[in-house]
Amino acid sequence: MSDYLLKAEDINAKYGDFQAVQGASFDIKKGEIISVIGTNGAGKSTLMKAIVGIMKPSGGKVYYKGEDITGIPTHKLVEMGLIAVPEGGRVFPRMSVLDNLIMGSYTPKARKERNQALERVYELFPILKEKANQAAGSLSGGQRQMVAIGRALMSEPELVCFDEISLGLAPTVIKDIYATIRQINKEGLTVILVEQDVKRSLKISDRSYVMLKGKIVLEGNSQELTEDEVKKAYFGL
């Protein structure tokens, strides 16, 4: 049990009468990268919302460091080192880049480390230092994604969920961002990637889960899974 950093058991999640996630289970060890792959509407984002406390699961349990965190509000989870990067580089558009990053260090624990964390984010994304005083809404898609990632890193996290990080970005930008993720993973961060892009996810992650219609339909070592196999599960063929 305790060798898993996070373990989700039989998660159910509903919107009204619509069951978006039906009994999904997955786990992740410290230092791992896993990917949760699925089409738009497969329920993977809802699953992540249930994990990070944005919505309450209607069934199932989530354990983090061996502790039951089911239904614990998001702000407590952030303090425990679990944070999510929302899709599409969702920044606070009217706030400056710097203020966006500062919002990442909102928890009391992170506030103390703020200056070091900021230096580190600027090292990872030098462009953000240049644009520190610009409104985040005025940045390009890739730069906004950097703000979103940097902001999450400011919280001194142990586990980061990246939601659809490559959505709508140019291939070269995606490549850079994936390189960054690999780098921060090497520095000790545990990573959950929620993706639609089969090839890329398999390449970067240690293990993969494929979701379809609210269920996990395939899981395995990313090296051992073939692209064909995953695509079949992905489309439900």
């Binding site: 990070v52 944005i54 509000p73 998001t74 702000h75 952030v78 303090e79 944070i83 999510a84 929302p86 969702r90 920044v91 606070f92 558009p93 009217r94 706030m95 919002m103 990442g104 909102y106 928890t107 992170a110 902001r151 999450a152 919280s155």
Partner: peptide, 13 residues
């Protein structure tokens, strides 16, 4: 005010 859900994700109660 900018984005309630993301604020929540950043640890704002």
């Amino acid at each position: 005010a900018d984005d309630l859900e993301v604020a929540q994700l950043m640890g704002v109660n």
